[in-house]
Design a protein around this nucleic acid. Structure first.
Length: 1031
RNA sequence: GGGCGAUUAGCUCAGUUGGUUAGAGCGCCACCCUUACAAGGUGGAAGUCGGCCGUUCGAGUCGGCCAUCGCCCACCA
């Protein structure tokens, strides 16, 4: 045993030296600090291939090393740990592979921002090596923090297998994948219009772009027609939101058949008008009017321009004084704008497509840093905003600005730098998706990969079906550098000679750039081809390229490792819906391409955690909650159980949070305003405290005000309840002896407990195996609280007093707790282990029907299996009657404000068989309702009232003269209620249609319920008469 | 514009294939520190299940339309 484990054991003994010392309130810290090291030192988290056991594997969605984890991650990892712990207990060889993601752009951006803020330097000041070194330092710090957060939560990951998407093992997988794709002709280099982030100076994927409405303008410019003939317009008017791009215009387009296009637009409008609602109709009618007006005013001009375009006429691009052609293209919609479109191929995705169709020149006017280049003529060196103002001013001077409109523009921004995106023509690397996407689609269509809930399969399939090539290059320094070397001087023969006999180098001629593209598995020296110099591609790969390989790279691919053979494909991927396309789809295609097998069977998509405003949690919004804050206040178990309890199928999890003032405990609601502040002044005690955003030393020096949510109180209270139930059991185990229990020794409540246990075991197992976390949590909550604690524990108290009935009661009690703990362990690992260890001291051998030595840790104890033979509906029905009688007695006491200390005198008139069943329960009425019960014969009841009428039994409470009139009044009210119900039921049963068409059992149920109501009615009337009242 | 989800008690949410008088936690009211538990116990008040129409013997549940909110995707010269 390691020193750590020995300490843990010592602590356990110390903590429980005497059961009587167990605190009344559960202290999560004790269990959390004690048992995690214990588990780890025993190697429970570790799994090795074992052909005799069935594997169950999960790979963690690797958190970005950008920053610490928030509650969204806590949810994601809690659910994984619940699954892995259950499967481990079920006997599977359970492996959960942890790790983190280098998160290319995101991490580099964070470090660059800090570099600028703290040292006023850009990445160019520190150079590639310097920056990468700083990012590694950042990564080391945050990786540790992330892994510590996971451990604190109790995650049972196999830490010996911890991976990082940029570590040597992942790097090898990335290199091999790229090599194979290149060799198979699935990777190419192309000049493409990309989303350019001018701040970070890199291309970003479409998914990394978000749109935000900003106020802007819509400018109408006139381009003079060259040599206008009589009857021809002198100008073509175009509209734009980005005036400076006109410097790169290479054409103006008009629709080839504007009349038909207008007709079509009108037809569509009318069609929509037919089905439109009130509000939409008004809008559509306005559009229709606009369309008809266009026909009058615009169409003749457009037709003219169309003819001119077909005749090959040109216009003069102002400021640049460049003749550019008029062309016809369907992109120029006559119902939009001026009906004519300026074409800027290098800076607009649609225009780019047009240029490809018409073979137009593409003029790039931008430098990578967002300033204008030499193609912008006089505007060279200006920023986009400067150029925008100047272009407009200069055109105005020329009288070529027709008008300007104010307009809100949905502007594309980079997700990473939050700056506007510029579409830019650059050289990028792409993966051909046609074939790969189809493979990934097939896997979901034919069910090899199951997406749960199924509605998310649509997201996956829709996205893949577009089969858009995947841009994989990023102009960053943090990431896997693309393994390509360029050479534009060598001949093919020289390459063949240089790489003769090597199958780890392949090359291809790039006609567009007139150079060799050489791809190699091992880095090539610059002089690898004698007499020539190779230049390495500087770009790195999109971070999702390495993430896509995660399920097999972590298992050692491309090596044919025992792990890969045994644990792949993994079983379940637990993730959030926003990366179904970015990540899940790409993992499926990469797995199929590299390994020939899907990466996982089930993809479980869990809800998102939202803040009080319904917004998702993110670093950038500042609304992320550190799970450590929650654990500090409520404990890791409460965090986990609370999250599981909230994980329902359809709802996202709304989580309004507050800051807790560290000085006075005041809760300060988190708002959009205060959630990004580094320090907050408590409105109650007026003292300042620091938030998670504190960075300056003077802020950090302040006490930290954690972010908390009352939504974990239910879970915290539940844990405390469990703790105290366990405490009760532990305090009552003196003299415990293990043994079987003969059926005839079982009391009604014992058989009820066993029956309920069997059902609960089966339900919880079923819920968890089908990812119904909330249902599992609720089932256990209700059972533990309302059945085990409120009834079984209460009832068993009586029996623990008697030497004769004590042993059986103890065995049942321990068995019940033991089973409950095991069912709860995946959700509540620390508390259950803590109690398990205490139980091991008092009752090391336990359980029913056959006692056995308990496992040394609950983590490796067997998962409970339902014993269907224990399920007994008759017993449960009988027990329900008992509960109802008890409830009615309690209710009577409260209504009549009988002091808790006063014993109630109760009579039961019962049939012989019912009386026999009830007789053993009499002590429970005494302890649980302080009711002294006597069986009496039917006959005149004296002064008493009826509190319960059931099948074969009537329960009466003795009254004093003083209560007579009040009771009459109450019974009259009750009668009125009963009457309403009865008439409702009668009506239903008198309805022929119902009796004929409803299923027989439903009708029978109604009849039975009516009979019962009538019995109650009769009994209540009788009481009123007895008491001398009139109905 | 396309798709998805939601709307149930003051708040946050459950509610299986349609079937007794729609549930929980918090909050609220009353009484209780009863030797497992006040982070607790007992009892209570509180909902025309967003609206309309339909299917059905029967609708919170199924279908249609409308309203409101949220998310994803696409597009906007």
């Amino acid at each position: 045993m390691s020193e750590q484990a020995a300490n843990a054991n010592a602590n356990a003994n110390q903590a429980s030296g005497s059961m009587k010392d167990l605190p009344k309130q559960y202290d999560p810290k004790v269990a959390e600090t004690q048992w995690y090291p214990f588990w780890e030192s025993r190697g429970y988290f570790h799994a090795d291939p074992d052909p005799n056991r069935t594997p169950y594997t999960i790979v963690i969605p690797p958190p970005n090393v950008t920053g610490a984890l928030h509650l969204g991650h806590a949810l994601n990892n809690t659910l994984q740990d619940i699954l892995i712990r259950m499967k481990r207990m079920q006997g599977f060889n359970a492996l959960w592979i942890p790790g983190t993601d280098h998160a290319g752009i995101a991490t580099q951006a964070v470090v660059e921002r800090r570099l600028l803020a703290e040292e006023g330097k850009t990445r160019h000041d520190v150079g590639r090596e310097g920056l990468v070194a700083r990012i590694w330092a950042w990564k080391d710090a945050y990786e540790k923090r992330i892994l510590d957060q996971l451990k604190r939560m109790g995650c049972s990951c196999d830490w010996r297998r911890t991976r990082f998407t940029l570590d040597p093992i992942c790097a090898r997988a990335v290199r091999h994948t790229f090599f194979r794709l290149f060799r198979d002709g699935l990777i190419y280099r192309g000049r493409r219009l990309v989303n350019w982030d001018t701040l970070l100076q890199t291309a970003v994927a479409d998914d990394e772009v978000f749109h935000e409405p900003v106020p802007g303008h819509f400018w109408y410019f006139r381009y003079p027609v060259i040599d206008p003939q009589p009857g021809e317009p002198e100008y073509v008017t175009v509209a734009t939101t980005r005036p400076e791009t006109m410097l790169g215009d290479t054409a103006v387009a008009v629709h080839p058949d504007p009349e038909a296009a207008l007709d079509k637009a009108e037809r569509e409008l009318r069609k929509r008008l037919n089905t439109a609602g009130e509000k939409e109709r008004i809008e559509l009618e306005r559009e229709l009017e606009n369309l008809q007006q266009r026909r009058q005013t615009l169409l003749p001009t457009l037709l003219k321009l169309r003819d001119m375009a077909q005749a090959g006429r040109k216009v003069l691009l102002p400021l640049q004084n460049r003749p550019i052609p008029l062309i016809t293209d369907v992109w120029a919609k006559p119902e939009m704008g001026t009906g004519c479109v300026k074409i800027t191929p290098a800076h607009d995705p649609n225009d780019y497509e047009v240029a490809l169709r018409h073979n137009l020149p593409m003029i790039n006017i931008l430098n990578l840093d967002g300033t204008l280049n030499e193609n912008a003529g006089a505007y060279k060196g200006q920023t986009i905003m400067e150029a925008r103002q100047n272009v407009v001013a200069d055109l105005e001077k020329l009288g070529l600005v027709e008008k300007v409109e104010e307009r809100i523009i949905d502007l594309a921004h980079s997700d990473r730098s939050k700056t506007p995106i510029e579409p830019l023509l650059t050289d990028q690397w792409f993966v051909k998706m046609e074939r790969l996407a189809q493979m990934a689609m097939d896997a979901v269509i034919d069910g090899r990969v199951r997406i749960i809930p199924p509605r998310y399969a649509k997201t996956y399939l829709d996205w893949l079906s577009e089969k858009r090539d995947w841009p994989i290059s990023r102009q960053l320094w943090w990431g896997h550098q693309i393994p390509i070397w360029y050479c534009d001087t060598a001949t093919e023969k020289e390459l063949q000679e240089a790489f003769a006999g090597r199958d780890d180098v392949v090359w291809r001629w790039d006609e567009e750039h007139r150079q060799w593209l050489i791809c190699a598995l091992e880095d090539l020296p610059a002089d690898a081809v004698p007499g020539h110099t190779l230049r390495r591609e500087e770009d790195v790969l999109d971070t999702w390229f390495s993430s896509a390989l995660w399920p097999h790279s972590t298992l050692g691919w491309p090596e044919d490792t025992p792990e890969l053979r045994y644990f792949y494909p993994t079983n379940t991927l637990v993730t959030s819906r926003d990366i179904i396309t970015l990540w899940v789809a790409r993992m499926v295609l990469a797995g199929l391409y590299n390994v020939g097998e899907v990466p996982f069977r089930d993809v479980y998509i869990h809800p998102k955690i939202l803040d009080g405003y319904g917004e998702g949690m993110s670093k950038s919004k500042g609304n992320g909650v550190d799970p450590v804050d929650v654990m500090e206040k409520f404990g890791a178990d409460a965090l986990r159980y609370g999250l599981a309890y909230l994980t329902t199928e359809t709802q996202d999890i709304r989580m309004p949070v507050s800051f807790e003032c560290p000085h006075c405990g005041q809760l300060i609601e988190q708002t959009r305003e205060n959630r990004i502040l580094p320090r907050i002044i408590c409105p109650h005690c007026k003292k300042p405290f620091a938030t998670q955003w504190a960075e300056k030393p003077e802020d950090k020096a302040l006490p930290r005000g954690p972010v908390v949510s009352e939504r974990f109180e239910l879970a915290r209270n539940f844990c405390n309840k469990l703790w105290n139930a366990s405490r009760f059991v532990l305090l009552n185990l003196e003299g415990f002896s293990p043994g079987t229990v003969r059926p005839e020794e079982l009391f009604l409540e014992d058989r009820w407990l066993l029956s309920r246990l069997a059902t609960v075991v089966q339900q919880v197992t079923d819920h968890l195996e089908n990812y119904r976390f909330s249902d599992a949590a609720r089932t256990l909550y209700d059972f533990a609280w309302d059945e085990f604690c409120s009834f079984y524990v209460e009832m068993v108290k009586v029996r623990l007093q008697s030497a004769e009935s004590r042993p059986t009661a103890q065995r049942l009690l321990v068995h019940g707790l033991d089973t409950l703990l095991r069912l709860l362990h995946p959700m509540i690992p620390f508390l259950t282990e803590h109690v398990w260890q205490l139980l091991a001291q008092a009752a090391p051998i336990r359980g029913l029907p056959q006692p056995a030595q308990a496992a040394e840790s609950i983590m490796i104890a067997p998962w409970p299996v339902a014993s269907p033979g224990d399920q007994d509906p008759a017993i449960e029905e009988q027990f329900r009657s008992f509960q109802e009688v008890l409830k009615s007695l309690r209710e009577y006491r409260m209504r009549n404000t009988i002091p808790p200390s006063e014993t109630m005198l109760v009579e039961i008139v019962a049939r012989q068989d019912v009386a026999n069943q009830l007789r053993p329960m009499l002590p429970y009425f005494q302890t649980m309702a302080r009711a002294d019960i006597q069986f009496v014969d039917e006959g005149e009841p004296g002064l008493s009232t009826v509190v319960y009428v059931g099948d074969g039994a009537t329960v009466r409470v003795k009254l004093s003269e003083a209560e007579r009139s009040r009771e009459i009044a109450r019974k009259r009210q009750e009668l009125a209620k009963l009457e309403a119900l009865i008439s409702q039921k009668r009506k239903k049963l008198e309805n022929q249609a119902f009796v004929e068409k409803a299923p027989r059992n439903v009708v029978e149920k109604e009849r039975q319920s009516l009979r019962q109501l009538e019995e109650q009615y009769a009994a209540v009337s009788h009481v009123i008469a007895q008491l001398g009242g009139t109905t």
